[in-house]
């Protein structure tokens, strides 16, 4: 039975791979006002976003669109991973059930097929992607569609980013000195060589940020419900790092100690005694500076120096 199910998985995978095809297009948008502040707002329903800061005065966009079949492929890949894990775990209790689900999924697709005799296949090359630029304000959007949108974007380093990604892969940001706001519902947010301020939020995935120089004008805040938060700061960076972790652990490479209110503490305020439950843990690095707040419910928090 196990062998049958694995064969079924393999067939589904190869069928989906045959259906998958990608379109890639490149766009270059010169800025209306070179040297002035730039902002980039991206909203993608399904896909991945990679942003790189560079020394130019234009926005370079490479968009790869994949049919939704590729998403199905990803789903099957995930199922195979789960099945493999079950097998290596020695339990294998759910394999039959998984096989049934995949069989049902394949049959559902088969039912949609009708006779194409005498017809030729026409590939959908239209891109469901909008790019607009006005006075250095750029908007890129791909709302709900049957396409997986993968964006590789080069922007001036000073660009201010506002990114939302609902499904698919990760958001990756490199070498940006402008303010960053990012939200990813299913994928991770990974940023390297950024200065902040940064406000990022994920649900079940990690946020990994390596700060270059920390912006001291505005606070930074990273929040994840169930993902880990991992930050790296330079040894000479001044900051006040606040951590709110409910069930996870905190791992610190800082020379400065974290201090915290006790789990249950009694406080006097205005002559009134009250019980304070929980609280934040904070560390003032190099005498303290702008706030970096890290909040996660189930994940761990890692604070590193470099």
């Amino acid at each position: 039975m196990k062998k049958l199910n694995l064969t079924l998985l393999g067939l589904t995978l190869s069928a989906l791979m045959q259906n998958a095809h990608a379109i890639e297009k490149t766009y270059s948008l010169p800025l209306s006002n070179p040297g002035e502040p730039v902002s980039l707002e991206i909203e993608v329903h399904t896909g991945a976003i990679y942003i790189e800061g560079f020394d130019g005065e234009s926005i370079e966009v490479t968009a790869t669109m994949e049919e939704i079949a590729t998403n199905e492929l990803n789903k099957v890949e995930r199922i195979i991973n789960d099945v493999t894990a079950e097998l290596s775990d020695g339990r294998g209790n759910n394999i039959e059930k998984i096989g049934e689900i995949i069989s049902g999924h394949t049959n559902k697709h088969k039912r949609k097929l009708r006779s194409a005799e005498g017809l030729k296949s026409v590939k959908n090359n239209s891109m469901q992607l909008e790019i607009e630029e006005e006075d250095n304000e750029v908007e890129i959007s791909s709302e709900y569609s049957t396409q997986n949108v993968i964006l590789h974007i080069k922007v001036p380093k000073r660009t201010r980013l506002d990114i939302e990604l609902y499904k698919g892969g990760d958001v990756e940001i490199n070498n940006i000195s402008g303010a960053i706001e990012a939200e990813a519902f299913k994928g991770s947010i990974i940023a390297n060589g950024v200065s902040g301020p940064m406000v990022a939020e994920t649900h079940n995935t990690d946020i990994v940020v390596s700060f270059d120089v920390l912006n001291q004008q505005n606070p930074t805040s990273l929040t994840s419900h169930s993902g880990n938060i991992d930050i790296s700061i330079n040894k000479n960076t001044s900051a006040k790092i606040n951590v709110q972790s409910y069930k996870g652990e905190i791992f610190s490479g800082l020379a400065t100690e974290f201090f915290a209110s006790e789990d249950v503490q009694r406080k006097n305020k205005g002559g009134k005694q009250k019980i304070v439950i929980g609280g934040m843990m904070s560390a003032e690095v190099n005498g303290g500076g702008q706030d970096i707040t890290l909040a996660t419910y189930n994940g761990n928090v890692y604070v590193r120096t470099k």
């Binding site: 506002d162 301020p197 004008q217 606070p219 706030d291």
Partner: peptide
């Protein structure tokens, strides 16, 4: 409209 700026507002 920016969350970073609203955070500054709270500060």
């Amino acid at each position: 409209s920016s969350a970073a700026e609203r955070l500054s507002g709270v500060a």
